[in-house]
Amino acid sequence: MKHVFKLASLFFLVISCNNSDIDSPDMETTRTPDDVRQDFENFDFQPGINDITLESTTKGYFWNFRVIVPDGASQSNKKPLFFNLHGGAQNNIPDAHKSTDCLISPGLDGIIDAFIISPNSNAQLWYEPNNQIQVLALYDLATSYLPIDTDKIAVTGYSDGGNGSWFYAQYYPNMFSAAIPMATSYNTAKSNGSIAPITIPLYVIHGENDTLFPVETTQGYIDESIAAGSNINFVIASGLDHYHPCDYVSYLRDAAQWLKTTVWN
């Protein structure tokens, strides 16, 4: 089931702790949103890679994420922002958010000079409540404290991250101007079976030989969404499978060019 929270209130929610994490009923388990904001504001972000650990609004619950800062970004020279959602979201991989050299960085290099925020899923799917809280909180923090052009924010991801990209495009279109899902199998039908158009454009990339998510299944979901009124470019990556994401760089570069010249022009 997909659980959707409202942006206005989500950052102020307290992430639930397991009872085993609480030593006593009197133990302080929450921090205020201002505590989180202050910690984020105090980070010394430098051009290039910044690997960050930020304590959330629950004591002892941390968000681990990478922020790549483009050269020359300033309040007088604001830059676009990409949210990069990694694959294998249910696997407990402490450094999964650091895999930016494989796909997202070379995919944008020389085409779009942008901030990249790459969060760690904490072994949960991207549409799970904790990850919605994380993504929306990082969105709030980044757009509040970094020189970001809020008219140019996109979400992308591979495999589980691609499904996450679909999800945020569908349920949080006011946050993003476009989505670039890759190697996905995301059914846009709601729980009642209805399909509503997604209101931001998507550029969907899928491997021809993907055996985990057969291309025919993804094509069917896309056809249904287009029939409902969605604006989707669907590109099949010739000869590519699911298990070599770094091979998709040239296709992501085409998507970045589409974003730059068609969506953000």
Rank of each mutant, 00 (worst) to 15 (best):
R253E: 10
G48P: 13
A256E: 02
G229L: 09
I205F: 03
A73C: 01
P33W: 08
Y127V: 00
F213P: 02
W264V: 04
A169Y: 04
L259P: 06
E128K: 15
N50V: 04
I232G: 13
F82H: 09
V263P: 10
N92S: 14
Y243H: 09
S24A: 11
M1I: 09
S144F: 03
L240T: 03
T218C: 12
K190T: 07
I49H: 07
K152F: 03
N19K: 09
T261P: 02
A256Y: 00
G87Q: 05
T217L: 11
T184D: 06
V215I: 14
H206L: 06
E216T: 14
Q75V: 05
W63E: 10
N130M: 04
A256F: 00
N131P: 03
E216K: 12
V69F: 15
T217M: 08
D39V: 07
F234Q: 05
S56C: 14
T188W: 00
N64I: 06
P147L: 07
N120R: 14
G220S: 13
I116T: 14
H3V: 14
V135A: 05
D21R: 11
S159C: 13
A142S: 15
F11G: 08
T218R: 01
K152E: 02
T100C: 12
M182D: 08
K2N: 08
T199N: 13
Y127H: 13
K6W: 02
G164K: 01
Y221Q: 04
P25A: 12
E55F: 04
S165A: 15
V235S: 11
G107T: 04
Q90Y: 00
G157S: 07
M1E: 09
F176A: 12
D113S: 15
